[in-house]
Structure formats: C-alpha cells, structure tokens
Nucleic acid binder design. Structure first.
Lengths: 334, 334
DNA sequence: CAGTGGGATGTGAACGTGCACAATGGCACG
DNA sequence: CGTGCCATTGTGCACGTTCACATCCCACTG
C-alpha cells in the first residue's frame, strides 16, 4: 500500500503538496496538481483515513442509534440518512438497541463514542430514549429523529399531529361521530402526536373523543383489538396509529363478522408498500420517511460544524383515500 | 481527551503497560492491572481507534453493501449482522447501492475500501451483483449473502430450493395439479432458487409445470398478475415467490371475482410480519433471515482472520400453513 | 532598481497507539 | 552461591497524515 510520500516522490514534489492536492487546497499550480493526480492514479494511492483521523481528530463518521425492529419507516429513513451522509463525505455506522433500558442506551452511546463518531442520530421513537439521551450530556452532537418537544421537534416531526388530524377529519367529514383511536404505545413520541391530532380534530368538531385504546404497533395486537372492539360495537370508525395494526384490526373485525368499510371505517398511518393491496385497500396518511432522514442529517451536520441549523419547513403529510373508509352504514341505510 | 500516556503517568507505569492492560495481554501483574484500570476509569480514558488503526492497519470495520429497497428480509439480516459484528469487536458501515450497474458496484466497493473496511458482506440478491463482485478481485474478503453458485452457496442459501419445494408439494398434496409459479425477477438468486424448487416438485409429481410468470417482487405487480391470471383461468393454485406479491395477487384475484382459497389457492415465501393478518392469512414459507445474517458474518470473520470457514449446516425453512390454501374447488364440489 | 506582497512549495513536528527489543527482578535448580 | 529462565515492565520507533511555519520566487509598485 503506497503512502503520501510515495506519491510525492513519484510526482517530484513534497508530501505536503500531495496533501494539498488531496484536500483541494487552492494554491497549487495546475501543472503540479496534474502531476500529483497522475502519480496518485498510477500508484492507486488512497489516503489512509486512520492517519488522517489521528491528526484531525475526526473519522468523518456519524452513528445511527436505532431502536426499531425493522419497521418500514425507520428503514426508509436510515437509507436516506446513509445516502445523504455519504454525499457529505461522512460514513455511517449503525447500532441497534437490544432494548430501551437506560442502561443499554448508555452503553450504546458509549460504544459509539468509543468508535469516535462525530455525531449521532437517534432513530428511536420511544420518548424515554430521547429523555435518556437529553439527560446524558454526551460531548457529541445528537439529533433525535422523533423529538418529544423543543425547538427541533417542529421542524422534524410536527407533521405527525397534522397528519392524524387529517385522518380523523376525513372520518368526521364522512359523517362518523363515534370514532375510536387505536393508539401506539404510551412511550412513543409518534403515538402521542397522533393521538393529539385525533383529540384536536374531535374537539374541533365538538365530538367528545373516546378514551383511546393502547396498542403496540403490531398486527397481532390489532387483531385482538378488533375482536374486542367488535364486541363493544359502539363505534362506526377507527383511526389506527399505523398500517400494520390496521391490517390486524381489520382481520379481527372480519373474524367477528364485521366488514370494513361496510360496518366500520378504518383509517391509518404510514402508507406502507402493501397498504394499497390488502383487502380492503387502506385509507392512510402518507409519510415521507426519507425526507425525515435527510432533515435529521442536515441538522446534525450543522451542529457538528458549529453552524446555525438550517430552518426547515415541516413536511406536510398527505391523506391517501382508498377503500377502508366510507360513510357510516352505507349498506344498511337504503 | 486523555491519552494512553496520561493514564500511564497517573498509574505510575509506562504507556506500554497500559497498552497491555487494554489488549488483555496475560503478563501484567494483577496489582498493576488494577491500578491501570483505576486510572482509566478516573480519566474516562478511551482508546483512540484511529491511532490504533494506524499502527495495526485495521479499523475493525466491516462494510455491508446492500442493494435492496428496504425489504423485510434484508433488514432483518442486516440487524443480525450488525449485532453479531459488534459482539465480535467490529463495527459496521452500510452502503446502499443506488442501482445495480457494474459502475455503481465498482464505485461502492472502492468507496468501502477507501474507508478501510476489513471485509465486506454483500446483501445483494441480484445475481449480477455477485458476478461483478466475483470478477473484481478486490483485495479484501467478500461474502455474498445470496450466492449464485459455488461452495458457500449451499451453507448460506440452499434452503431456498427446499423451501420452494415444500410450498409446491403442499399444493400438490392438497390435490392441485394446475399450479402456476409467480416468480421473482430473472436476475435474482432467490428467484431462480425458488423457481428451481417449484420445478423439482412438479416434475417429481409427474406434472408438467407451467412456464413461470416473471414478477418484480412488488405488490403492484402481484395485482396485475392476479388480473391476468384470472383471465386465463387455467390454474387452481399459485406459488408466489414472496409474500408481498402474493398480497397483490390476491387483491387482483378479488377484483376479478376470484376468492382465495375458494377458487384459487396461494402459497408464498418469507412469512413477513403481516402475513398472518391479511385476508386470507397467508400460507407461506418462513425464513430465518437473522440466522442467515449471522452465518454470513461468521464466514466473513473466518476469511478475515485467515481461518478455515466454519462448516454450517443449512437452516431448513418451515412451511406455515394458514388460510390461503385449500383443496381445489372445495366450495363448488358439494 | 529596490522593496513588498503573496502565491507556491518545502520542512519538521505532532497526533496516540502497538511492536520489537531491552532491561529488570525473582525464583528454581544444580 | 551462581546460573539461567521467565514473568513483568520499560524504551524508542514507526505508522501516514495534517498543521504551523519557513522559504523561495515572481510580479507589481513607487
């Protein structure tokens, strides 16, 4: 493996000049630059990141702390982060939390700091993760993709409330008044935001909201909830906090003889790839997870470089109307 | 930030002794070891990976080259790889291919080599990716998770053929003879393996197989295929190469008035989390993607260390029978 | 023509670690 | 008591890069 000095020797310059060429320093004469570039190509020289990191004290590395079990959203955001980071000259290392205990969060952050990351993006939707992180005073910049509150919250994920509102208002405008919310787990930021949007929309329409049912995002839970809600029978529509639970819910309804949207309307959140193809096709709120990831990275890079973070206008979610919602009792009314 | 010499000074030893403690060299007296450990704790000292990498010429880093668009399987494998790698003292960096052209593969591998990865796992199911990689003669160990052929192929992914066979035989044992295969894209290793399993099972049962329909893994395509196959109407069952396409296919059938499994049976592959909850619940072949990831990592680590790779017995896939399959014409026969 | 400024290039040190080798000390053995 | 061995510890250097500073040269100015 050839070093910067080998290149220098071949090009007939000093190692420092080679370094200047590599780092695109302006004051290198064009002719010299070319000779150096030729030498680099000829030797297939590649800068040693370790040596550079040793002296600049930065590996140009960002860490992604993730606490989601292969969900669609997180995966999309991660891909976007990785792509954007590499475009900015950073590489990315991922670390999956085995659980969301304070201990494992501490261990994970410590681990990433040992790996000398320049900054950290937490792809961890649980509120407690952001709380633990906020309380840690790690000496590196940290951006949480889903923030419980504070300045960055709005730029990154305020759209959640608006999206949930959109979904609920859609049901109300169809004529539903007895709308139940099947929520996500208490600890999750998105769960809270989506519930907030539900409550806002209900109260604005002067309907007293039901106490929400707490779910856990899984289709299994959705199924159980479907069976239970079918027994209760006191609602004509359900706003579900994510698509996967909605699929389970519809399954549960069907097991109990309820058809969607004939007997109950269902609207959910995420627009996962199969949402248009399950039966019935899901009316759902589409989220741009990739944009979310890119935003998080922009914020982090700004923090790393000590710049003032860019002002980002929140991305607005879209409601995609498909077949899982209808006016109440369309079939039984005529 | 304190260095190894600061620790040495505080503990009253030489930097080399500290280095020995860090690297768990046996010949350090217990008392000395404790003093050093105390000093490390007191200073919150962390070894500088860059400096270490500079002298050992290894960052303890493995790269994952991925060419999948957030699919369930790849994501699960990736998580498992990351976890196993970190347990072995390696960190992981991911690189997503924008496309599978030879150029972008070259660029990606080059990029990862510039980042000084010790080895590379390709999570790239397209046959051409493994071919390009095989032809590259990169000077680092590379393990392809889905290998087209060769020695590692069997240990890693031979189960695909067996799984497809299982699925097809299930249909045959139910009494189906007109079984169509909705396959994956021609270029994908899994697609070929699954088709092979289908063909094997059909021929073993003395049934002449249909020419397979080529899909692209997406639910959208599944839907189109469903509409088309419903028109043809010459089959009683379909073996679909993955769950997501199966969901689309069932949707397409339903649009054309065909019910699954009443009119057509469907069996697919992967057992994604919603498979049990869509309507009808999918009969499908379960794959242990995590185990696959862990195997790949074991192989890679062995290559990196120059050891002989461990002999792994192939993991056998399981058929999960749910509601999308039945005997032919159960409803119309009585 | 001398003086000055700045672009282009070179020199030497430093970053924090591991390795090779040297040095020290204690113990067993004859 | 001398010898040799081994466990334990220390010394100096090298890894490949960037940074601070020095030097050179040329063009421009008055």
């Amino acid at each position: 493996m050839s070093s910067i000095r080998d290149v220098a020797r071949l090009a007939g310059v000093s190692h420092q000049t080679v370094s200047r060429v590599i780092n695109e320093h302006p004051s290198v004469r064009e002719g010299t630059r070319q000779r150096v570039l030729d030498a680099i190509a000829q030797l297939d020289y590649r800068p040693n990141v370790a040596a550079r990191a040793l002296v600049t004290n930065s590996l140009n590395l960002i860490g992604v702390l993730s606490a989601t079990t292969g969900e669609f959203g997180a995966t999309s955001s991660l891909t976007a982060i990785e792509e954007a980071a590499r475009a900015a000259g950073y590489s990315v290392t991922t670390l999956n939390l085995p659980d969301v205990s304070a201990d494992s969060i501490h261990a994970a952050v410590r681990q990433l700091q040992n790996e000398r990351v320049d900054g950290l993006i937490a792809l961890a939707p649980q509120a407690r993760v952001s709380h633990v992180l906020a309380g840690m005073r790690a000496d590196i910049p940290i951006v949480t993709l889903q923030t419980a509150s504070g300045a960055t919250a709005e730029t990154l994920s305020a759209d959640q409330v608006a999206g949930a509102r959109l979904a609920t208002e859609h049901l109300i405008s169809l004529g539903h008044r007895d709308v139940v919310h099947l929520a996500g787990p208490q600890d999750w930021v998105e769960a809270e935001s989506r519930m907030q949007g539900y409550l806002d929309a209900m109260l604005d329409a002067d309907i007293s909201p039901f106490p929400p049912v707490r779910g856990d995002w899984t289709a299994d839970f959705g199924h159980t909830a479907g069976v239970e809600l079918a027994h209760r029978g006191d609602m004509t529509a359900v706003f579900v906090a994510n698509d996967v639970m909605a699929i389970g819910l519809i399954h549960g309804f069907r097991d109990m003889g309820l058809e969607v949207p004939r007997d109950v309307s269902v609207v959910s959140f995420d627009d996962i790839p199969v949402a248009a193809h399950v039966t019935p096709a899901l009316t759902t709120v589409h989220q741009d997870f990739q944009a979310l990831g890119r935003r998080a990275l922009l914020l982090l890079l700004a923090e790393i470089r000590g710049e003032t973070p860019p002002v980002l206008e929140p991305a607005h979610p879209r409601l995609i109307v498909r077949d899982s919602t209808a006016t109440p009792h369309t079939v039984t009314q005529p």
